[in-house]
C-alpha cells in the first residue's frame, strides 16, 4: 500500500505473483510429451499383444490360419497396425531406458531430461525406419 501511494499517478509496479501449478497453466514441454507418449505407447503395446497372440496361435494352428493372418498383415490396414506396433515398441524401449537411468539416479537435470526426451522421439523413429528397411531387404521385395 505504501508503495502505490509513493508512486502516485503511475500504476503500481507489481511483482508477478506465483501461480498455483495446474496442468492448464503449465507450458507444454517435451518432457511432458515424452511422459504421456510412454503411457500411450504402453497401452498401444497392450493392444498390439493381441496381434502377437493371434500370430502365435495362427502359426501353431496350421498353414491355413497362418496364411489368413499373413494376408491381413499384408493389407494396407495390417501394415499400418504393424507400423504402429513397431514404433510403439521402439519408443517404449527408448523411453524405458530413460526411466531405468532415472531409477539409478542419472539424467534428472532439465537440460539432460530435455535432450534425452528428444533422443527418445528421434531414436524411436529412426529405429522403426531401420527395422522396416531391414524387413523389406529380407523379404527380397521393393
Amino acid at each position: 500500500m505504501a508503495e502505490s501511494q509513493a508512486g502516485a499517478g503511475k500504476p503500481p509496479v507489481m511483482r508477478p505473483r506465483p501461480l498455483s501449478p495446474h496442468l492448464q497453466i503449465y507450458g507444454w514441454k517435451i518432457t511432458m510429451a515424452a511422459s504421456i507418449t510412454h503411457r500411450i505407447t504402453g497401452v498401444g503395446l497392450g493392444i498390439g499383444s493381441l496381434l502377437l497372440t493371434g500370430w502365435l496361435l495362427a502359426l501353431a494352428d496350421g498353414p491355413e490360419s497362418y496364411a489368413a493372418l499373413q494376408e491381413f498383415l499384408g493389407s494396407w490396414f495390417g501394415k499400418l497396425v504393424l507400423l504402429g506396433f513397431t514404433w510403439s515398441l521402439m519408443y517404449h524401449l527408448c523411453n524405458g531406458l530413460r526411466h531405468l537411468f532415472w531409477d539409478v539416479g542419472y539424467g534428472f537435470d532439465v537440460a539432460t531430461a530435455n535432450r534425452t526426451a528428444g533422443a527418445a522421439f528421434a531414436g524411436s523413429v529412426l529405429l522403426t525406419i531401420i527395422a522396416w528397411v531391414l524387413a523389406y531387404m529380407y523379404r527380397g521385395a521393393v
Binding site: L59, P63, Y66, A67, T86, L89, L93, G96, L97, H99, L100, A131, L134, A135, Y136, Y138, R139, G140, A141
Partner: peptide, 28 residues
C-alpha cells in the same frame, strides 16, 4: 521386468525381421 525386456525386445524385433516374407514351413 523392464530391465529384462530391453535385450529380450531387441531379440524379438530381430527375430520378427528375420521371419518377414518367409513361408509357413520356415517360420515353423
Amino acid at each position: 521386468t523392464a530391465l529384462a525386456l530391453v535385450p529380450l525386445a531387441v531379440l524379438f524385433i530381430g527375430f520378427m525381421i528375420a521371419l518377414t516374407g518367409d513361408d509357413y514351413a520356415t517360420a515353423v
